[in-house]
């Protein structure tokens, strides 16, 4: 176990090192930077600024400086906002995390319940309806369903606010603030859940169908156990095992924000920050964010391997 872990950590460091090299090289070689985009500046002023930001140094040297600072936990300053990159992340990521955590939780819960029932009642009318609904939900683009729900629920019926995280100009505190945020997050969460539900439900349904055919399910029934026990004690745990791989993939998306959804609902999340920075060629922030996703992805895989170890007695590390 401990030799596995130390080996695994070594690989992780190597992967992250390679990722940092790749990320830096890609952004550094992309034509244009934060300064070229600003047409108000004179050529002398541009050269002066490049000198200040260190952009005139050779690429390898710039990478060395960036990596050294990053290893000390300093991902530099956002050029556009003149704030430390990490502080900006801290300002925006938790907003994204709020949306992602709630919608991921709902997606998994609903997908497990519907997947189990429709696998158990395969080819019944319930199963058929679910399958049609799932394909419909999967086929709808997020911008369409998002705008459609805004039109219906926010503009026409005025049940929910159309966008933002709090009402403009509001300075609610305490429970009033919480209530306001919940109202604002309802629509984006609904859209994100709808979009994620389809593939996950199909995943659980097919996993459950496989498990229900296994010999040990027949044994469980032969013992005289109730169908509820057969399903939830004997089948579900085995059907959930392959989904542990997905848990690892969920980790980056929990913090990575959603560019389209946050744009549609004007949610002040990290996805919006990323889009805005991209337009401005704010490379320190973009590199920091991409690196963060790389770290989360590597940690996510480690996490899912650890979870396998806990959940499946056949897995030894």
């Amino acid at each position: 176990m401990s030799t596995y872990l130390s080996k695994r950590l070594l690989y992780m460091i190597l992967i992250l090192f390679a990722a940092s090299l790749l990320i830096f090289a890609l952004y550094a070689n992309t034509p244009g930077d934060f300064i070229t985009g600003n047409i108000k500046l004179t050529a002398e002023r541009k050269a002066e600024l490049r000198e200040i930001y260190g952009l005139n140094k050779p690429m390898l040297e710039r990478y060395g400086i960036w990596l050294k600072n990053a290893l000390h936990g300093d991902f530099g300053y956002s050029l556009a906002q003149q704030k430390p990159v990490l502080q900006l992340f801290n300002d925006y990521i938790w907003n994204s995390f709020l949306l992602a955590a709630v919608s991921t939780f709902l997606t998994w819960l609903i997908a497990v319940v519907i997947g189990v029932i429709s696998a158990y009642r395969q080819y019944s009318w319930f199963d058929t309806l679910v399958m049609i609904g799932i394909f419909a939900a999967m086929s709808l683009p997020s911008f369409f369903i998002g705008l459609f729900l805004i039109k219906m629920l926010a503009v026409d019926l005025q049940w929910l606010p159309p966008g933002g995280m709090i009402t403009t100009g509001s300075n609610a505190t305490g429970m009033a603030y919480v209530k306001e945020v919940i109202q604002h997050m309802t629509l984006p969460v609904v859209v994100m859940t709808l979009l994620g539900l389809g593939s996950l439900t199909r995943y659980f349904r097919s996993g459950m169908i496989d498990v229900l055919r296994q010999d040990y399910i027949r044994t469980a029934r032969a013992k005289g156990l109730s169908e509820r026990k057969v399903l939830f004690r004997h089948a579900l745990r085995n059907a959930l095992l392959p989904a542990i791989t997905l848990v690892g993939f969920e980790l980056p998306s929990l913090f990575g924000g959603s560019i389209i959804i946050e744009q549609i609902f004007n949610w002040p999340g990290v996805g919006q920050l990323y889009m805005k920075s991209f337009g401005l060629r704010d490379y320190p922030l973009l590199m920091g964010f991409t690196m963060l996703l790389a770290i989360l992805t590597v940690l996510g895989t480690l996490l899912s391997d650890m979870l396998y170890r806990v959940a499946d007695p056949r897995v030894r590390l």
Partner: peptide, 10 residues
């Protein structure tokens, strides 16, 4: 099939 007749996770 005794090998597959028992639940692997219990």
């Amino acid at each position: 099939e005794p090998m597959s007749s028992l639940n692997p996770v219990l």
